[in-house]
Amino acid sequence: MNTQVKSETLSTGRTMRPERGARLLSKQAPLLTLLSFLLAWELGCRLGEVPEYLLPAPSAILAAFTDVDAMRWLGHLWSTLRVALLGFLISIAVSLPLAIGMVRSSYLSRTLYPALVVVQSTPIVAVAPLIIVILGTGDAPRILITCLISFFPIVVAATTGMMSTPPELIELSRSLRARGSREIWQIRLPYAVPHLFSGLKVAITLSIIGAVVAEFVAAEQGLGYFVQFSTSYFKIPQAFAGLFFLSAVSLLLFRLVQLIQKRLFPWSLLETRQH
């Protein structure tokens, strides 16, 4: 891919080099796209005189956002974030041992994996009310729902990553007669890091979804609850404001996972030439 780009620049030479303005334009293209989308939305609502309870204009959503007290926002945010992050962390804590177990023992992988697939295939949204009935209305059932929704990509990513370790390295480990646990900790797990982070990026956004699903079923706090509550009172601009706030939080958490990967495992973003 890279070499192709290079050779194109070489063959076409100076004439094709983009001017500074054009470069800036292409760099800011995603932002510009978003802005034009919002502008079109705003204009569409105003010119088409769309009623606010059907589709509020961005300006109305912004107004609804600032109408709500900052402390109230923070309260809802904290409630959702707490459940999502705890659920995410517990998912990691459960998934990694599961993945290690399945890599080390073919018996475990034969027995456990189908069970995990069954859990993953069950629509958790449908199970959520049952979980609330069984566990009550505290944080615990919400965290459980979040875990059930977010653990699967982590297990799959960690297992695939560890299984993709080059066989030579496993032979090296065996030729040194190293302990099996060192094969996991010093070779397989680090090897799985790039895979694992792809899984974590999916899982973090799923954990926000999990927290919101739980709030839809039973809650008196949280951004998901806020959206549902606003909708039921036909405060549509306010519901949209809550929705956008949720997306922003989800996006920020996604970026946070990316940042952690970049900080802690910079090598995992380098392309190694040995494969």
Binding site: P166, L169, L172, L176, S268, T272, Q274
Partner: peptide
């Protein structure tokens, strides 16, 4: 331990 192996691919640990 008296035997060392060099593989076809270098298979260094990228981290």
């Amino acid at each position: 331990d008296e035997v060392g192996i060099v593989f076809q691919k270098p298979t260094l640990l990228p981290w």
